[in-house]
């Protein structure tokens, strides 16, 4: 027996989001109103351990982070394929398992490849 979800089941989630949003906005507004405001120039400079700010913070960063992001996108999407399979695992039986293992095997080959290639080495 599978659980049925209707759009109406999602309504409480919207309620909850509204509650959370209300909370956030109210709190933000209240702190904004009651907090003191004594703005000085120095106070508004970015914190850089007390020394002069050099350049913009938004400079290119290590390529490693991009690599991790890209690998994440790839692997995470492959993982998506496993969810329907996992939920229906018992119905799909042995054939389904073997097929998915082939898929996992391929994934694993790629995974080993990137590790060997040093894509995940942080030196």
């Amino acid at each position: 027996m599978e659980l049925q979800s209707l759009p109406v089941n999602y309504l409480p989630i919207i309620f909850q989001m509204l509650v959370a949003l209300g909370f956030v906005i109210t709190t933000m507004f209240v702190t904004h109103k009651i907090g003191p405001k004594r703005v000085t120039g120095d106070k508004l400079t970015p914190f850089e351990s007390g020394i002069e700010v050099i350049g913009n913070a938004r400079t290119p960063m290590s390529i490693k982070y991009f690599l991790v992001a890209i690998l994440f996108v790839l692997f995470d999407v492959e993982v998506i394929f496993m969810y329907p399979w996992a939920v229906n695992f018992r119905d799909l039986g042995k054939d389904g398992m073997i097929e998915m293992f082939i898929f996992i095997g391929t994934l694993l080959l790629g995974f080993i490849y990137i590790i060997k290639k040093g894509a995940l080495d942080w030196d």
Binding site: P60, I63, F66, A69, I70, L71, V73, L74, D76, V77, E78, I80, F81, P84
Partner: peptide, 24 residues
């Protein structure tokens, strides 16, 4: 839809790599 998502992800991966390369 699943396939589209997966291949869109592959496109994202390659596309971002290309854009980063151009940016550099």
């Amino acid at each position: 839809v699943f396939f589209i998502m997966a291949l869109a992800a592959a496109e994202v991966a390659v596309g971002l790599a290309i854009i980063v390369m151009i940016y550099r």
